[in-house]
Design a protein around this nucleic acid. Structure first.
Ligand SMILES: [Mn+2]
Ligand SMILES: [Mn+2]
Ligand SMILES: [Mn+2]
Ligand SMILES: [Mn+2]
Lengths: 222, 222
DNA sequence: CTTTAAATTTAGCCTTGACTAAATTTATTT
DNA sequence: AAATAAATTTAGTCAAGGCTAAATTTAAAG
């Protein structure tokens, strides 16, 4: 039942999961650019995943893909590996949060379930990875996310950073120098409707952030 | 220069290294059975490795293969990864020496050089893996091995176990129950020339071991 | 020196998962 | 509604790295 999926398939499923978290289906083009692969290749793979038994995705020509329950399970397994590994690399080998992603990206596909259990136990079953992202549980449920993008807050609203959604090392370093890390408290003091810039107060500083940033910072309003 | 070799190629090189440590060349059949692949597949791959630039193996039809300097470098890189990983898994995650091999076999191909450095440093640059096998140095030299197989000792010779050459979990567990682990001291008290059995005293026990075992235990005579 | 056996190589085929170029479908504009 | 643009799919290739079956080479025996 749990035959081992190829690394490519694992990556497709993980990326489909991420693109469909919002409820929409994942388009061929979006998947292609996320996977660094040509759209034609995506069509081919997606057709295969749809006709696999059991099917891993739901697919209608020109309508994009979504995950079946089996596909979602497989995706969450990879995501759990990835996030546990990130946490573990930071906690035991002193990686910084901008260095872990690439390493976890490769390890996620080859560790055993035993390895997964051991690092989870060694860290006391952490709930979040170094970026604050929720780690799927051992029985492959994604915990409820009670945060919203910072970009959805307006003047006088304040909150606590829950997680940052970014893999790029440079961007993560930038977030860090701004103090935009999990647990950070911030308050929105201004909003510019034309460019969607937000002015926020964080620590003793006041900074202006564009949508490119605010859409990647997830906060819990307080 | 250091293009990334495929996992298959890394495994071929590692296994060729192991088969040629004794100075002889590795035969197609031996390589095939070690890699769990058919002889025809080995021929194909070996031809490719020989005509790669730079060549990774030296190969003459029907004469078996040996590693070139480049091939040996690549093999030692994989072996260093493997053995450091085994040590790391035992020291930090509580794996037993019979569980580490399979995990290291997969991880060895995907960890970065940075990861390698970090675990080596975290362990204080260990010289041997959990089985006592020597770990190639960071600059990819294999340290000198001053041990001989237990099978080459005779009555009244004694020594200290340096390492055991085995990957099979059952065999390793058996070695452990016999006390045949690195650092163990033993003395040969008898030799049976017909079946090559050795009688050895280890701890307070006296046991008789067949060639299948004594050829896999490497000791330093004392 | 032949014959037989064992080892190795060759030839042809298969699966994965990419790619390019061409065809098609859907969406957007005029 | 027609034309253009954007997105997607189809068709045909390719490289890796396996496999089987057949051919060949080397080694062993009589
Ligand atoms: Mn990946
Ligand atoms: Mn993360
Ligand atoms: Mn391997
Ligand atoms: Mn070992």
């Amino acid at each position: 039942m749990e035959q081992t999926l190829t690394i490519s398939i694992q990556d497709y499923l993980k990326n489909i999961y991420e693109l469909t978290e919002n409820g929409e289906s994942a388009s061929t083009n979006a998947l292609a650019s996320k996977l660094n692969v040509k759209p034609a290749s995506v069509t081919g793979m997606v057709q295969k995943l749809a006709s696999a038994k059991p099917a891993l995705v739901e697919y209608q020509k020109h309508q994009g893909v979504t995950l079946t329950d089996d596909g979602k399970k497989a995706a969450l397994e990879v995501i759990r590996h990835h996030r546990l590994l990130e946490a573990w690399l930071v906690q035991t080998l002193g990686y910084s949060w901008d260095e872990v992603h690439a390493e976890a990206e490769k390890l996620e596909h080859v560790i055993s379930e035993d390895f997964e259990r051991r690092i989870a136990a060694a860290m006391g079953h952490p709930l979040r990875d170094p970026h604050g992202e929720l780690i799927p549980t051992a029985d492959l449920q994604m915990p409820l996310d009670d945060s919203t993008p910072l970009s959805s807050l307006r003047a006088n609203q304040s909150g606590t950073v829950q997680y940052v959604k970014a893999a790029d090392a440079e961007l993560l370093k930038h977030f860090e120098t701004l103090g935009l890390i999990p647990e950070a408290e911030l308050e929105v003091t201004g909003y510019s409707p034309f460019d969607h810039n937000l002015t926020i107060k964080i620590g003793r500083k006041s900074i202006v952030l564009g949508l490119n940033i605010t859409s990647k910072i997830y906060v819990k309003e307080s």
